[in-house]
């Protein structure tokens, strides 16, 4: 029984350490050649979106569907599907409370408005799907509850 308690608390403690550490870490990872590198290295969701889409304002849209679990048991693998009827140029998935909120983006050139992926989530957070269509930016969001974070080891 004691051992079990210890395990539980150490897991919880570990998650906290990771969350606390992430805020202090400078995104110094190499490979700055990528054009969208700064967006991926941003530690604030707003900053990431601003960098990726050049400061465009996003409006809410009912034409974007996010298919994701409401509650993710394992934050290390959270399946996300984004579908839109808009003529999408770019689809980006942002987990607002992740250390680096921009998880992934896809640039579409002939493919349909669809993107599916699996992301890591450190904690319960709003996940926002941004869709750039022409010179407009749209978004839709869903809150995903995470019981076990995916950032620790």
């Amino acid at each position: 029984m004691k051992r079990r308690k210890f395990l539980q608390s150490s897991v919880a403690g570990g998650a906290l350490v990771v969350a606390a550490g992430s805020g202090l870490l400078k995104p110094s990872i190499a490979a700055a050649e990528r054009s969208n590198e700064t967006a991926f290295a941003a530690t604030e969701a707003d900053e990431a979106v601003k960098t990726l889409f050049g400061g465009m304002q996003a409006e809410d849209s009912g034409d974007i569907t996010i298919k994701a679990p409401k509650q993710a048991e394992n934050g290390a693998v959270v399946p996300i599907k984004v579908e839109t009827s808009l003529a999408a140029d770019t689809i980006a998935i942002v987990a607002e409370k992740n250390p680096f909120p921009l998880t992934t983006a896809v640039h579409l050139n002939g493919a349909k408005g669809f993107y599916s992926t699996r992301i890591k989530m450190g904690q319960t957070s709003n996940v926002v799907a941004y869709v750039k269509s022409g010179d407009k930016l749209y978004k839709a969001s869903q809150t995903i509850k995470v019981t076990v974070g995916g950032c620790g080891g």
Binding site: N109, A111, I119
Partner: peptide
């Protein structure tokens, strides 16, 4: 012809499963 290009960050799960749709 390049139809889609996905950019990934470190926030994508290991052994990533990525999907797009083509018509």
């Amino acid at each position: 012809n390049k139809v889609a290009e996905a950019s990934l960050g470190s926030g994508v799960s290991k052994n990533p499963l990525t999907g797009v749709e083509l018509d």
